[in-house]
Design a protein around this nucleic acid. Structure first.
Length: 220
DNA sequence: ATGGTCAATGAGGGGC
DNA sequence: GCCCCTCATTGACCAT
């Protein structure tokens, strides 16, 4: 069975997974995979499973296949029987799940390319991208939301580093300026003080202005 | 075991 | 009231 998925099936991912998980619970569900010899990541792979209707399921499975291909090697032609669907989702007691989708390398690259062009998408762009990547529009939307958030975090981190550096530089500059100011102040004191006042009083034998000596008598 | 990553979820708010 | 956003958080998965 090829991945010719009908996006208009209107099957909500969550509902699908609930059903799928219930099925899994009921009858230890297994995948039967048939991997082609392609060296290209996803395109040539085929997969066999009942009710394969979710794009995210496709992603999960193609990711699983990628991992297996990685382990097996590039040249292979294998039939894998009874592979547990461990990567599709864990199931709680109610049969609810929250699967962890891992986007394929190709999907991520395309999304990244689009994000470089515009960090937000309008409805049309979103839909087109979703169809191209065989994802749900909501998934594309979420990816962009998370991508914007990551960008913001990174930006904040780099802003922090820049400001930290800036702060250090300014602190150093401030110290330097304070030292200079101190030196200038002390120099100013020296210049503003008359020479006679710079001489220790004990060394004076007479008044430099009037010529009187210590005793008040006129020096000669 | 633990921490990082990231898809997904839900609350809350703004614009229309 | 709907849609879309940000933000905080959750939970699955992975590397160490």
């Amino acid at each position: 069975m090829n991945f010719d998925l009908d996006l208009d099936l209107g099957l909500a991912l969550h509902d699908y997974e609930k059903r799928e998980n219930k099925k899994k619970m009921e009858s230890k569900n297994y995948l039967s995979l048939s991997l082609g010899p392609s060296k290209d990541d996803d395109e040539e792979n085929t997969i066999t499973q009942n009710s394969l209707t979710s794009p995210s399921l496709e992603s999960s499975i193609s990711n699983s296949m990628n991992m297996m291909k990685k382990e097996i090697g590039d040249e292979f032609e294998v039939e894998i029987e009874k592979v547990p669907i461990t990567r599709i989702g864990n199931v709680d007691e109610d049969g609810n799940s929250r699967k962890k989708l891992r986007l394929s390398k190709e999907q991520s690259e395309v999304l990244e390319e689009n994000f470089k062009e515009h960090s937000t998408l309008n409805q049309k762009q979103k839909q087109a991208l979703a169809e191209r990547l065989k994802l749900q529009a909501r998934q594309v939307e979420v990816w962009f939301q998370n991508r914007r958030a990551r960008t913001k975090v990174k930006q904040t981190e780099s802003d922090f580093e820049v400001l930290k550096k800036c702060c250090e530089t300014l602190t150093e500059e401030n110290k330097k300026l304070k030292r200079e100011l101190q030196e200038l102040k002390s120099m100013q004191t020296v210049v503003a003080t008359p020479f006679y006042m710079q001489i220790p009083a004990a060394t004076l034998t007479m008044c430099p202005l009037c010529g009187n000596n210590k005793n008040g008598s006129k020096a000669r």
